[in-house]
């Protein structure tokens, strides 16, 4: 009897996996960098190209790094959310301007607003590769030690901000205090 039930059993197990699979987005690729120190970088700042910015800027407190570009449609879509995040004062938001022209980036910011504490310029996308960026916008949350603790891929929505980003930041802050 059991051998006749075997095909049904196998199929039902598959069906459970399919049901779980339907809830997931196959295009979202989790980063292996989560839980690891942020990859080292040293880049010019967008507003003061003569001054460099590096990992040290991201240490000492919980911070957010938002990868964006002026040519990126999704970035415009999420920009209000990024502003809301910066205005909330939960954590400083650093920008990583990815494969962009300086003038375009500056014009974009003056048009849509500049919520960033500081912006690093990754002209060639090399730092982007080190950070495992595969599409913009992407948003990283780092703890006080400069370790990547969370990564959001694609534009953030207000729901994402409320239900994922802000809670993670709060948790990391509590962790840092204890």
């Amino acid at each position: 009897m059991i051998r006749y039930l075997l095909p049904l059993g196998i199929f039902l197990v598959l069906a459970v996996f399919f049901a779980v699979g339907l809830q997931r987005d196959p295009s979202e690729i989790p980063s292996p960098l989560v839980g690891k120190p942020a990859p080292e970088f040293q880049l010019p700042r967008l507003h003061q190209p003569e001054r460099a910015i590096d990992n040290a800027a991201l240490e000492g407190e919980v911070s957010v790094v938002n990868v964006w570009a002026s040519w990126c449609v999704g970035c415009r879509e999420e920009h209000e959310v990024v502003k809301a995040l910066a205005n909330s004062g939960a954590a400083p938001v650093y920008g990583l301007n990815y494969k962009d022209a300086r003038e375009d980036a500056l014009r974009w910011l003056s048009h849509f607003g500049d919520p960033y504490t500081a912006i690093a310029v990754d002209r060639d996308g090399d730092v982007g590769i080190d950070w495992g960026v595969y599409g913009v916008p992407e948003t990283f949350i780092l703890d006080a030690d400069g370790v990547i603790r969370y990564k959001h891929i694609g534009p953030m929505s207000e729901t994402d901000l409320r239900e994922k980003i802000l809670p993670v930041i709060r948790e990391l802050k509590t962790e840092a205090r204890s």
């Binding site: 009897m1 006749y4 095909p7 049904l8 199929f11 039902l12 399919f18």
Partner: peptide, 25 residues
């Protein structure tokens, strides 16, 4: 759509395999 086809799949494939398990012995 995915959910619908999955439900349909379970009915058709699950149902026929159950019939198989019941009748084939």
């Amino acid at each position: 759509r995915g959910l619908y086809i999955l439900a349909f799949l379970i009915v058709v494939v699950g149902g026929s395999l159950a019939l198989y398990a019941w009748r084939s012995p």
